[in-house]
Design a protein around this nucleic acid. Sequence first.
DNA 1: ATACAACCTAAAGCTAACTTTAAGTCAACG
DNA 2: CGTTGACTTAAAGTTAGCTTTAGGTTGTAT
Lengths: 145, 145
Amino acid sequence: MYTIGQVSKATGLPVSTLRYYDKEGLFPHLERKGYVRKFSDTELEEVKIIECLKRSGLAIKDIRQFFQWVSEGSSTYEKRRELFARQKEVIQQKIESLEKTMAMLEFKCWYYDKALQDGNENELHQMLPDKLPEEIQKIYDKAHE
Amino acid sequence: MYTIGQVSKATGLPVSTLRYYDKEGLFPHLERKGYVRKFSDTELEEVKIIECLKRSGLAIKDIRQFFQWVSEGSSTYEKRRELFARQKEVIQQKIESLEKTMAMLEFKCWYYDKALQDGNENELHQMLPDKLPEEIQKIYDKAHE
DNA sequence: ATACAACCTAAAGCTAACTTTAAGTCAACG
DNA sequence: CGTTGACTTAAAGTTAGCTTTAGGTTGTAT
């Protein structure tokens, strides 16, 4: 059993955030000893799930919905599986988007490296948009897909 | 030369967002014909940079700072290169975080597949946290790093 | 006993990035 | 000539996800 302060240290989330999550119903089985919250390993694992679903772009109310399904038992296995399958696709798209973003940033790094060497952007302007060195052209094209 | 409506269609950004970006100073060279904005290819490329920097987590005021540097000329090449290098690291971390997220989602999909097959979570509970099938264990461990 | 730290609540406040609203300008078509 | 549609502004409104505030309770150490 952990206090909210211990959970805060263990997870890196501020105490105020943990209280907010509780108020939003994200710890449906959280116990109290008097007025004090008593967190268990269940809640520590729930924090991991919350952060996972948050990173995948789910809103708090949809995360609450998930925990609602959990407390409804085996009849909601399918719904839960579908939720995770959907979020897998969301994350896949996010990763692909970030890889394009990365290509743009790599291109820009190369661009300013060259601009610094040349002291100006004259040559660069002549190379754009399709006369870049082969490897750079690939990156540029990926960034501008 | 394009109207704001054409740029909206070309970029997928709402007209109101383009106006907002303009108000925030993200199109420092945008021209007007009377009171009407006239976008050029410069601004189309700027939209790509804005979206790239936004995806990397930069705030609007920092994007404006970048365009400020651009308009200051070659003396800011280094600052600009460093900005992009920094954001490359940010994106790299985001990708790694999403890959961990993906591992969690994959584990959860496997978990509920099995729960559906078994009709309950009894076997699953006995497997956790370190007696999972080899491949699944790897994924689980990655998700819980 | 008293002070201190760590817990609590309800409610108000904050922030970024838009979006909406209300009121107006202008060019072109029928 | 008048109405339609695409443009304009300034300012107010929206949203999620916290965070802060003000005031209160409890347990432990000196």
